[in-house]
Design a protein around this nucleic acid. Structure first.
Lengths: 207, 207
DNA sequence: TTGTGTGAAACTTTTCACAGCC
DNA sequence: GGCTGTGAAAAGTTTCACACAA
């Protein structure tokens, strides 16, 4: 199998979502790359190339079976099983993420929160148990947490990342406004809200 | 001037942040591309190339003046003036963003929220006025809002985007789990939280 | 005829490598 | 000697274009 390009996985997620929408109100049970990609503003060539990295899923002259492509994409994205997720830092953003609807729908279960503040821990928030950092190893093992979200202030994030890694976590989504760097065996994605806005301010000030 | 690559602006934001941190506890008032890029896990070549798109800011044999590079980056990113921002959809995520600290620090002022729910509008939330959608044009004009954040459910997002554009908004950050597509004069960035996690589940299930 | 799968071309982005100034 | 600015090479990604299967 060939190595997919860096954005391929994100686009596969878009295809899967589009298929799920489609299968609600669609009579036909096949779809062409053209039809599936149109709304997403992605070229059909790109879609076929993205799938190509993972195998052959369509039939020439016909297109793709909606059902089987959905299954295949779910499998590629690892969504055919369920995953336990923890959130480190339950301030405003962390708390909002605790109940983010889009996660549960895809077998992503937010199962624990961690915080340093004494008045936040050892109680439930939005129905989810919040623990002190000291309990991290215990909770992550006990609940088989595989994915962590960091939503702490920037200065706390690097230490939290190290701690998560030492607890065996290998997949981290970081919302703290700092670019974390993880060792190669750990998959880390940085989502920086301010930086996203700066792309907009740059655009506006030169337009 | 040459056209910067798609990720250049995001990296400039990282350089600016690193410089701001640096100038707190640094004696020297110049810095080399090597030193500035090291922590960020970016090559010095990349940093110099990113700056190259915008001009010549360093001195050979010496490096960059921390102060003047900070100013120059602020200017490129449009952060030397302040911007008014509105948030459409004040559910969990939208509400968290209303008070997100990282915005205010950089002259990004969240100045209004919009929602469709009668029990949310015409009152303040986290100190910020929430209006019904019908008031959008009026509020955007009156408060000179230039940037909008969409944090509605996915099904509401396309109509909200259209409405924002018809109100004169040219820069939009979308958190709704749908890939919006905007006309070319509008800068739109999609941030999809679920998709970010799917990159992680994909990684874990093939590792 | 339709529409996938896929080499090859075109384009984009990053890295190399070094001339030239400090 | 140190470090930037920048052509040129390399690497990565997307688009083209068409053979081939339904």
């Amino acid at each position: 199998m060939k190595k997919p390009s860096k954005d391929t996985i994100s686009r596969l997620a878009l295809y899967l979502r589009a298929l799920q929408e489609l299968s609600k109100d669609r009579s036909s049970d096949t779809i062409s790359s053209q039809d599936l990609s149109r709304e997403l503003n992605i070229s059909p060539d790109q879609l076929r190339r993205d799938l190509w990295y993972f195998g052959q899923f369509g039939r020439r002259g016909v297109g793709y079976s909606v059902e089987s492509l959905k299954n295949k994409l779910s499998q590629i994205l690892g969504l055919n099983k369920s995953w336990n997720v923890c959130i480190c830092g339950v301030g405003n953003l962390g708390s909002a993420l605790l109940t983010y609807k889009g996660f549960k729908e895809h077998n992503l279960n937010i199962i624990a929160g961690f915080d340093v503040e004494a008045n936040k821990v050892n109680k439930k928030k939005n129905g989810i148990d919040i623990y002190p950092l000291e309990d991290m190893k215990k909770v992550i093992k006990a609940k088989a947490v595989k994915i962590a979200i960091i939503a702490t202030p920037y200065f706390a994030a690097p230490a939290v990342m190290e701690r998560l890694i030492s607890c065996g976590i290998r997949a981290i989504l970081n919302f703290a406004p700092i670019k974390l760097v993880a060792p190669p065996q750990v998959k880390l994605r940085n989502v920086d809200l301010s930086t996203e806005l700066f792309n907009l301010t740059h655009f506006l000030s030169q337009a």
